[in-house]
Simulated scan of single mutants.
Amino acid sequence: MKTLILAALLCALLALDTAQAFSFDCRDVWRPSKNRCFTYVPKAMTWTDAQKNCLRQGGWLTSVRDAEEYAVIQKVITDAKGTGLTWVGGHDITEEGKWRWTDGTPFKYTNWRPGQPDNDQGNEDCLHIFTEGRWFWNDLDCQTPLPSVCTKNV
Results as ranks from 00 to 15, higher is better:
M1H: 04
T3F: 05
I5F: 05
L6C: 12
A8P: 04
L13D: 14
L14T: 03
D17E: 07
Q20V: 10
A21N: 03
F22H: 02
S23C: 04
F24G: 05
D25Y: 04
D25W: 02
C26N: 01
C26I: 05
D28Y: 02
D28G: 01
W30P: 06
W30Q: 01
W30N: 01
R31N: 02
P32N: 00
S33Q: 05
N35F: 02
F38I: 05
F38G: 08
T39K: 14
V41R: 11
M45H: 07
M45W: 12
D49P: 07
D49L: 15
K52G: 07
K52R: 12
K52C: 04
L55C: 08
L55M: 10
R56K: 13
R56V: 11
R56T: 05
Q57H: 14
G58R: 13
G58T: 15
G58H: 07
T62R: 07
S63N: 13
R65C: 11
D66L: 12
A67H: 15
A67S: 10
E69Y: 07
V72T: 10
I73C: 15
V76K: 06
V76N: 03
T78R: 04
T78M: 06
D79C: 02
T83C: 15
G84H: 15
G84T: 14
T86W: 01
W87H: 01
W87N: 00
G90D: 14
H91W: 01
D92S: 15
I93E: 08
I93H: 09
T94R: 14
E95P: 05
E96Q: 15
E96H: 12
G97F: 03
K98T: 07
W99P: 03
R100F: 02
R100N: 10
P106V: 00
F107P: 10
K108S: 15
K108G: 13
Y109T: 09
Y109I: 15
T110F: 00
N111L: 15
N111F: 02
W112L: 11
R113E: 15
P114W: 11
Q116L: 06
Q116K: 14
D118P: 03
D118H: 07
N119K: 05
Q121T: 09
N123G: 01
E124S: 14
D125I: 06
H128Q: 07
F130S: 00
F130L: 01
F130D: 00
T131D: 01
G133T: 09
G133A: 01
W135N: 00
W137M: 09
N138H: 01
D139T: 05
L140A: 00
Q143K: 10
Q143H: 06
P145I: 00
V149T: 03
T151D: 04
K152F: 12
N153H: 04
V154N: 12
V154G: 11
